[in-house]
Structure formats: C-alpha cells, structure tokens
Amino acid sequence: MARKITYQQAINEALDQEMTRDPSVIVMGEDVAGGAGSPGEDDAWGGVLGVTKGLYAKHPGRVMDTPISESGYIGAAVGAACNGLRPVAELMFIDFMGVCFDQIFNQAAKFRYMFGGKAKTPVVIRAMYGAGFRAAAQHSQCLYNMFTHVPGLKVVVPSNPYDAKGLLIQSIRDNDPVIFLEHKALYTMEGDVPAESYIVPFGEAAVVQEGDDVTIVAIGRMVNYAKDAAASLRKKGVSCEIIDPRTTSPLDTDTILESVERTGRLVVVDESNPRCSMASDISGFIAQEAFGALKAPIQMVTAPHVPVPFAASLEDLYIPSPARIEEAVMKVKEYR
C-alpha cells in the first residue's frame, strides 16, 4: 500500500526487503553497520547519512563495516559477486571512485564479455553524488557520465523515492554490475512508495509530465528543478514535456526521440560538468537521429567546466537552477 516515505527510507526499505528475500544479498562499506563488531548496537549510525540504519541488527552477519580502503573492499565485493553473493557495496561519495577504477572498469565490467558470457557479476555499488551540500570539490561531483561511458556497467540515477526503491531492487536482482547513484539533496524528499516490493526496469524512461512545445530531458535531482521550471512556464503558456531517463545506461533513447520528434525542441538538464556529459551525449544523439525534426538548436543546461566551488554563493550559482532551465526553454521556444 502506498504511503509517503523519504528517498532515504525507500533505499533502506529496498535493501531490507531484498536481504529478507534473498540470503545471498549482503551490504558492505564504510560505517554501514556503524559499530562493527559490537553486537546489539542496533541504533548505530548506519552509513554516513544513516541510509543503512537498522539493517545490521535485522540481518546479523550480513552488514559489514569495511576499512577506509575503497580499492580493497570494492575489489572484495566484485570478487564475492563472481562467487555467488549479491553484494551491495556503499562507496560513500562518488568522488572517491577514482581509487577503484581498475576493479570497476577493468574487472567487473569486463567479466561477462571476456569469459564468453559464462561469468556474471551481480554487484551493486551505491554512492552519493551532487552539489549543494557545502562539501567542496572533492565530495560534490556528478560522475555518472564516466560510468555510462563504459560498456558492461549499468548506471542508475533515481530522481524520487518511488524510483529509488524499485530501481534498487532491480539493481540487486540484476546479474551485471550496477552503479547506483543517490543525490544527497534528495534523501529528505518524500513521495508515495508502495510498502510491497516492486521493480522499475532499466532502460525505461519516465515521462514525468506530457507537453507539446519543448522536451526537457533531466537527470536525477534536475528532474525536480525541471518540474519547477515547467510549472512556471505553464503560466506563460509554454507546455513542457519532461523526461527522466532514470538509468543513463541503458538509456531509453526511444522515449526521448519520440518526444523530440513531436515537440521539435530539446533542452537537456544535467548537473554534471558539460564536456563529455549526459547532456552532450543526449544532444549528440538527437542531433544525429532527429535533425530534421528540430526547430531550434538544442540547449544544454549544465554546471560550468570548473570544480564545485566551496564558497556558498559560488556553489549556488554553479548548480543549474529552475530559472536557468526556464531561460533555456524560452530560448528554444522563441528561436526563429
């Protein structure tokens, strides 16, 4: 039965339900138990922001605190996945992925291909991403584009609690390595989430709202900003269709293409830096496949090509805003 819970609770519930359903599911990461080796500490922290709280007591022996050694425990998770477990490893901040690229890019992503389809690697790597937390350049990036680039990885960027739960359950059941990315600023977002278990399939975009004038494709937290912009634009008589790809790999190009062929105008909103981003990827795809349908040049609304600033005033300017999305929509709408 649907009731309102937060994005964070939705993730916790997905982990809990999958651990209950399948004994091969384990959770590992820094502070995910929050009191390793101290049984009874069921009110322990549960991850840096408390997402895994309560799982340690409920699923004894299956929630493991790891040393602060990402390259070590991500490698261990990949290895465990090859040997029959379904590990969900939490890497805290996506910014720290750099030290385990070999384990992810060169090992996990390659096994299915290099062992002739005989190997599966059902590992999920969860991490927080995104700016807005005054956490400076090393804890605020949106690096989903880097993982999207690598064949063999699946990349998930839920924008709301319903999708977070269904996509995480699908991630855990999936037999390929999945990078599951959670925007910090969404953890407190509330939404209708069924209490029952359910899946949201990969590669199926959500059409968040239908519209006729302009297609907005937005990623993660930006979906909600696009909704704000579209609400304001509606009062000005501009009707926006908002598409949330939900997974950047696989990417539901059909839904985007079908929409742009109808509206003839595209704005892509991506909190990432602009070079080699989802924004440029989707723009390039549409320029190639739907050039004839376009009535205006595609607009990308992204962060600038700089590290995330620590100064609060600059960080606020860095993140794409509803006002900037509105501006971009008006630009494509009024293009002659």
Binding site: Y162, G166, P194, E196, S197, Y198, I199, V200, A206, V207
Partner: peptide, 12 residues
C-alpha cells in the same frame, strides 16, 4: 498506463 504498470510490477 503508468499507474497500471506500477500496479502490475508490485510483487505478487
């Protein structure tokens, strides 16, 4: 259609 899919995707 989306609401119906959400229903159909519930476990059970």
């Amino acid at each position: 259609i989306d609401d119906m899919l959400k229903f159909k995707r519930l476990e059970g």
